Computed example of a mutant assay.
Amino acid sequence: MTVPVAIFVAVSRNSVIGRDGDMPWRLSTDLKRFKAMTLGKPVIVGRKTLDSFGGKPLPGRPHVVVTRNADLAIPDVSLASSLDDALGKAQRIAAETGASEIAILGGGQIYAQAITSADRLYITHVEADIADGDTFFPGIDPDVFEKQEELLVPAGEKDSYPTRFAVYSRRTATN
């Protein structure tokens, strides 16, 4: 049995997800939801995204890091040479741990590859246009993904912007 693959991302109205190796906003409310939704799930990240976490894995989530550097050694993570390799390793981890989902956490290149096969998208739509972003999320094709739910989230005390949290599911093929 294959465990579903989900993308988790915060994206601005103009598709920005990053700037200078970090997110161009502070969204404490969203980070709490993100942590609750990803704990215990195997996560796949690119090496630069891991660097944005301080170079070490997020607690409570087995990590698979996609890197071109075969000599890289990072404690407590599995390394993969491609997204397909990472998905295979994450599927094995999910089978061993009983995880219900694999979480793709970025960055831009990983998202661009993963969106073609992801089963679900958990998108925090940041209600802002970010002028100086340097990393972008690909468009969500409404013919491929159907919005299942949406929650409006006003900016909290520690949030830069209000958000809309939406869940999209891959449409099933019909003949």
Rank of each mutant, 00 (worst) to 15 (best):
I115S: 08
A94Y: 09
L105K: 00
I93N: 01
Y111F: 09
E101Y: 08
A90N: 07
I104F: 08
D85C: 05
A90T: 08
S82K: 01
A99Q: 01
H125M: 11
A90D: 07
V126E: 03
E101H: 10
H125K: 13
E127G: 09
D129F: 13
I110F: 06
G88W: 02
Y111A: 06
V126H: 06
I123T: 11
Q113R: 14
I102K: 02
K89V: 05
A90I: 06
Q113A: 11
I102S: 05
L83D: 07
Y111R: 05
S81K: 02
E101C: 12
S100F: 06
I110D: 02
E101L: 13
S100C: 03
A95H: 12
R92Y: 03
G98P: 04
D85F: 01
I123K: 08
Q113D: 08
L105P: 00
G88D: 15
E127I: 15
E96H: 12
G88E: 15
A103L: 08
T116G: 09
L83A: 02
D129I: 15
H125S: 12
T124F: 09
A118I: 08
A112W: 04
T124V: 10
I110M: 03
T97Y: 10
E101M: 10
T97H: 10
L121C: 13
S81M: 04
L105S: 00
I110L: 09
E101R: 14
D129E: 15
I115K: 11
I93S: 05
I93Y: 05
I102V: 09
T116K: 15
S100G: 11
A118C: 15
G107K: 01
I110V: 14
H125Q: 10
Q91Y: 06
D85H: 01
L83H: 00
E127F: 08
L83I: 11
Q91D: 05
A118E: 12
A86F: 01
A112P: 09
T116C: 03
A99E: 00
S100P: 03
I123Y: 13
A103Y: 07
I123R: 12
A103K: 07
E127P: 02
A118D: 11
T116N: 14
L83V: 09
T116M: 10
I110E: 09
A103E: 04
E101I: 10
L105I: 10
L83N: 07
I115Y: 06
A95Y: 02
A114Q: 05
T116R: 10
Y111P: 13
E101V: 10
A128S: 11
I110G: 00
T97E: 03
Y111D: 14
S100A: 11
I130V: 15
D84P: 09
S100Q: 06
V126A: 11
Y122E: 04
I130F: 06
H125G: 11
R92L: 10
E127N: 15
S100T: 15
R120Y: 14
A114F: 04
G106K: 00
A114Y: 04
Y111V: 05
T116D: 14
L105N: 00
G107R: 01
S82Y: 03
A103V: 03
I93V: 01
L105V: 08
I115P: 10
A112S: 13
I130M: 14
T97Q: 04
S117P: 14
R120P: 09
G106H: 02
A94D: 07
